[in-house]
Amino acid sequence: MEGTPFERRALHDINLDIADGTFLALIGHTGSGKSTLIQHLNGLLKPSAGSIKMGSTELKAGGKKQDLKSLRKKAGIVFQYPEHQLFEETVEKDIMFGPRNFGVSVETARLTAARVIEMVGLPESVLSKSPFDLSGGQMRRVAIAGVLAMNPEVLILDEPTAGLDPAGRVEIMELFNSLHERNNLTTILVTHSMEDASKYADEIAVMHKGELYLHGKPTDIFSEREALKRVGLDVPETVQFLQKWNEKSGLNLALTKFTVEELAEQVSQSLKKRGN
């Protein structure tokens, strides 16, 4: 597209370091560049300028044929509606697709399939079924298993809960959270939901019009409510409520975990203090 009238700069001057083992939430509206950014992370798109470094692999602008494959193996992407990528006759074969592409033997890939299907909370008996006979929620889990089977060092999730009902959303997010916690898996979550970001992320990056608008710990990000509102976002409901309570009571309470439970505890303690 470069040099044509269709050229549009989707990302501009992004500098972002993600430490090993981080759970990063990438927030922004449609068109903010967050999807473009994650596609750079595993070489599906190449930067027009600048570079991306993942572990020891580097992807540079204007470089020659680079080692995309090893980059892709390191960064597993779960795309939006990942169930749309299923194609094999059986769940097992579909899960083995990734590992086989990266040169893993059939036997090892088969063992991997058995391991990851359990990780996503499905019984082993599913492996011999056709993915198209499963329910929507199960299909999504199978597709996620297909990405996990590549043993990625970084897991990139592009709105993994889109189109699910509330119960399904919680289940899938808990799944990723436990993968992150148990295996110390570096996770990048692209989301519209400040609630999910506040619940799971150690770090939040806010994208706006192709630029990195804010980046920091949740506590830092949520203290910038005005800045968030300027780009059509807001702090999570727990923070909203606490602000209302602080205004009413004249207190200056703060949250660290942003859960409803923590909020209830804070508020009830402040009530008790007043009672004394």
Binding site: D165, P166, A167, E237, F241, E261, A264, S268, L271
Partner: peptide, 20 residues
Amino acid sequence: AGLDLPFSLKLSEALRQQGV
């Protein structure tokens, strides 16, 4: 019914559990 609870409702419950 597979529906999430509204935030204020969840908080009301959590507060009651805290003895409010």
